[in-house]
């Protein structure tokens, strides 16, 4: 099984996106999509990415909901900052160094995607030897507050899923 289909979840996602793109689920489409999926899986296996172990998927729906809420909330906040007629004088932006406990590469990638996809924060750099992440924040009031938000709101739950 592992030799024919090295990454079953990724293969399933690939097949589903093929069907959605073709807009039908006829036998021919499924067969062609299955061939493409097999080829893609083998190509991916030859790259040998580190395998992710997903634990505690029960945390995932709540996490996705919180990401969506946070994206909407920060869209609103950043739009207000850009349109603020008082100008850009008082607001401070800056870099924050955040020490992370998470070491799983998939978890770090997920954290980077969450932080960068929410407007107002951009993941800039990660130092893997010391586990320190550099974050740029558009509206920086209190750096320690951001350390707390990242660690308690996102990192803890991502560690439950990926480690």
């Amino acid at each position: 099984m592992r030799r024919v289909l090295p990454y079953p979840l990724i293969a399933l996602a690939l097949l589903l996106s093929w069907l959605v793109l073709a807009g039908s689920a006829s036998l021919g489409t499924i067969l062609l999509g299955g061939m493409v999926t097999l080829g893609g899986s083998w190509a991916l296996a030859s790259l040998a990415p580190p395998r992710a172990r997903l634990r505690r998927l029960a945390v995932l729906p709540g996490l996705l909901r919180d990401v969506l809420v946070e994206v909407v909330r920060s869209n609103n906040a950043v739009a207000r900052i850009i349109l603020d007629p008082a100008g850009q004088g008082r607001r401070q932006s800056g870099f924050v160094q955040i020490p992370l406990d998470m070491r799983s590469p998939q978890g770090l990638a997920a954290l980077a995607c969450i932080l960068t996809a929410t407007p107002g924060t951009v993941w800039v750099e990660y130092d893997s030897s010391e586990g320190i992440m550099l974050l740029h924040v558009l509206d920086l009031v209190d750096a320690s507050e951001w350390v707390r938000i990242v660690k308690e709101k996102w990192e803890r739950r991502l560690m439950e899923i990926f480690e």
């Binding site: 739009a79 929410t118 407007p119 740029h136």
Partner: peptide
């Protein structure tokens, strides 16, 4: 570094 945030909207 501030402008990087803008297109995310």
């Amino acid at each position: 570094y501030e402008r990087v945030h803008a297109p995310t909207l």
